[in-house]
Design a protein around this nucleic acid. Structure first.
Length: 651
RNA sequence: GUCCCGGUAGCUCAGUUGGAUAGAGCAGCCGCCUUCUAAGCGGCAGGUCGGGCGUUCGAAUCGCCCCCGGGACGCCA
């Protein structure tokens, strides 16, 4: 068959959209000459309604507005100057100045064949040069605490953003910013250490449940009810109340003092404290990696950088900021002022000196930070992290998958880092610092998702429940599956359902968590997408049975004929893939990819119902359709992999 | 009080630098399995895009003012 002549394609094939874009720019320049404004664009987009062709250009209208011309007349002029006869029919001008373009059948199949490569038409961002580095901050667990629903988003969104960048050829460094340092950590370390010494606890068999209880208790035991005591004394509520509160306050003060001593011991790596802390850390992370691994997120020990790993850097960092005049004193605290960034609230990097005991805070700077001030704060650690990520890891982009409530904090830290020069790139300019924030997971009552008793829902429990529910569903829908495969399928379906529910809506919004909806397996869900892949793979199994093992191979180079509207619709959908990936990564919005994959799956399902593949009327049609199935299947599988969802052969 | 984010069909959500008749899914109703997995497909019905004013050929989208909900606001992380 005669393929249309396309412009030379050295590396990645040019998709019809970028070809059209170039030709339109030429035509617009020809029509407007010098008057063509700087950022002018043909504003090409896929048409929403097939009646309006395959693509439309909306650029003539704004152009006419700025030039004070009649939009329709300008559109006509652009069309007259347009040279796209090789790939498209003569465009029509419609309405106030829309230009509708219909591709020639050969151009569509040619473009589709061009993207039928291992890379699926996706060119690496670096364009063959040395890949750029992006750091993705994700997961964010805390020592001695179980993961709960709140960690789903930081993990799943962060992992998806990392995968998106990897897919586009970035070098990705994942960083699990582990909350393993500071006074609260010292409290629980001290409590565990004493329990072990008192033989009430065995270090060898610590469980995270126990640790979490001890963490809460230790914190409570350090909270002195000073206000209560003052009130009791002032209002003379009796010696008994006074004595009870007095004892509470005295005990709390003692506990606090001991925790502060423990912090000092930890900072100097004193052996007995350090060993206990290390073991608590190990137990916490083991549980974290188990849960995260079950979800298929790639977060392990090598991606984990505890706050403790920055402890030694904080005092020199603060000194550096003071020496260079970046930080200044304010009410006894050290702050970086950010008015020049339009931020009123300064970034506090060291507390004012406490009246009584020294120490405390994230870094416990009261000890290592010298006598001039109090402890460091989490902003201090985050500044050190930016410095490490940009200057040591070489990141030109740092993405934080962290709860939206920290938006102001990150605004401050990003600005402070730039002011301090910690985000400066080797080649000049600052690294891009991006807070890819997300909203809260809500229960079906519209309030933050909690158990009936008001506790946080444990991540591990939630994953297990999803898996159980999915297994029931799989048993019902496909009773023929062997036990082992059924469990594997249920597991993949359950995790896919949870992750897709999280990724498929705009991350910035809160979303309502519902097992029933995500596991209904209907409509816009993870299982629907997995199912589309399963149906495609099933076709290929049957093809091998009916036509021999070589059939798939024969189809892979078959001529594509896109006659049925359902075939054409898939083709147009497939061609969007590279652009969607790029836009999702640029905006750090995985839901753009999810929406696309859902539309592709829908296009496939419609095709599946309308166009017999194995029962096609001719061998040529069968092979063309098989090739279309193959492409759809590979894009779906690639896209699902890119958002971290497993693909199955059967379900 | 200041600032940030939301408000789109009964419910859950999409809606690309302003573009054509605002789209899906669920729930409801009507069809479709002797043919590749019906976890599917086709169709019907469902909307003052929170409200108002403005900008213009054109506004869910941009500007201003309100209303409602959530969140953050210097020594917690």
């Amino acid at each position: 068959m005669s393929q249309p002549k396309l412009p030379p394609m050295p590396e990645a094939p040019k998709d019809p959209l970028s070809i059209l874009h170039d030709r339109f720019m030429d035509a617009m320049r020809a029509v407007m000459g010098e008057a063509l404004p700087e950022g002018a664009s043909p504003m090409l987009a896929p048409s929403k309604d097939p009646k309006h062709g395959d693509f439309q250009s909306n650029g003539a209208m704004p152009l006419a507005k700025r030039a004070g011309q009649n939009p329709r007349a300008l559109a006509e002029k652009i069309v007259a100057a347009l040279n796209i006869g090789d790939i498209a029919e003569t465009p029509e001008v419609a309405g106030p100045g829309f230009i509708n373009i219909r591709l020639k059948a050969g151009a569509l199949s040619g473009a589709l064949a061009a993207m039928d490569t291992a890379a699926l038409g996706v060119a690496p961002v670096s364009g063959g040069a040395k890949p750029q580095t992006v750091v993705v901050d994700l997961c964010g667990v805390n020592l001695a605490k179980q993961m709960h629903v709140g960690h789903i988003r930081a993990t799943v969104i962060g992992d998806a953003l990392a995968r998106l960048h990897e897919r586009l050829g970035w070098k990705v460094v994942r960083q699990n910013h582990f909350g393993d340092w500071g006074l609260p950590i010292a409290m629980v370390t001290d409590a565990v250490k004493r329990a072990v010494e008192g033989r009430r606890l065995s270090l060898a068999s610590l469980s995270l449940e126990e640790l979490e209880k001890m963490y809460r208790r230790a914190q409570r035991d350090c909270e002195a009810d000073e206000g209560g005591l003052a009130a009791v004394t002032r209002f003379g509520l009796g010696p008994k109340a006074e004595a009870e509160l007095g004892a509470q306050v005295a005990g709390a003060r003692e506990n606090l003092a001991r925790a502060q001593a423990a912090l000092v011991a930890l900072q100097s790596h004193e052996a007995s404290h350090y060993a206990v802390w290390k073991e608590i850390s190990r137990v916490t992370l083991a549980a974290c990696f188990a849960a995260v691994g079950r979800m298929g997120a790639n977060v392990t020990d090598e991606h984990t950088a505890g706050e403790s790993s920055y402890a030694e850097e904080l005092a020199p960092l603060v000194k550096d900021l003071v020496d260079r005049g970046v930080a200044e004193e304010s009410d006894g605290a050290l702050v970086v002022r950010l008015e020049e960034f339009g931020i009123k609230e300064p970034c506090i990097i060291r507390k004012s000196a406490p009246k009584g005991v020294a120490g405390g805070g994230a870094g416990g700077g009261g000890v290592t930070g010298g006598s001039a001030g109090g402890g460091f704060l989490y902003a201090t650690t985050d500044l050190a992290a930016i410095r490490r990520r940009v200057q040591k890891f070489g990141a030109s982009k740092v993405v934080y998958a962290v709860d939206g409530r920290q938006a102001l904090h990150f605004k401050q830290v990003f600005a402070a880092a730039k002011k301090a020069g910690y985000a400066r790139l080797a080649g000049g300019g600052d690294a891009e610092l991006l807070h890819a924030w997300f909203g809260t997971i809500l229960g079906e009552d519209g309030r933050p998702f909690k158990t009936r008793s008001g506790e946080n829902v444990k991540l591990a429990d939630l994953l297990e429940e999803a898996s159980q529910r999915a297994e029931g569903a799989v048993r019902e829908k496909n009773p023929g599956l062997p036990d082992a495969e059924r469990r594997a399928v249920a597991e993949a379906v359950a995790m896919g359902a949870i992750k897709y529910a999280d990724l498929s809506s705009d991350r910035i919004k809160d979303y309502v968590f519902s097992f029933d909806r995500m596991l209904a397996f209907e409509g816009n869900t993870g299982p629907y997408l997995q199912y589309a892949v399963v149906r495609i793979r099933s076709i290929f199994r049957k093809a091998a049975e009916q036509f021999g093992a070589g059939e798939a191979g024969a189809a892979s180079s078959a001529a594509l004929s896109l006659e049925a509207p359902e075939e054409k619709a898939i083709a147009l959908e497939l061609l969007k893939y590279p652009g969607v990936l790029r836009s999702a990564a640029d905006a750090c919005e995985p839901h753009r990819l999810c929406g696309y994959l859902y539309e592709l799956a829908q296009a496939f399902s419609t095709f599946f119902a309308a166009c017999p593949v194995l029962q096609a009327t001719t061998e040529a049609q069968r092979r063309s359709r098989l090739r279309l199935c193959s492409l759809a299947g590979r894009v779906l599988a690639d896209g699902l992999h890119t958002i971290g969802i497993k693909v199955l052969d059967r379900m």
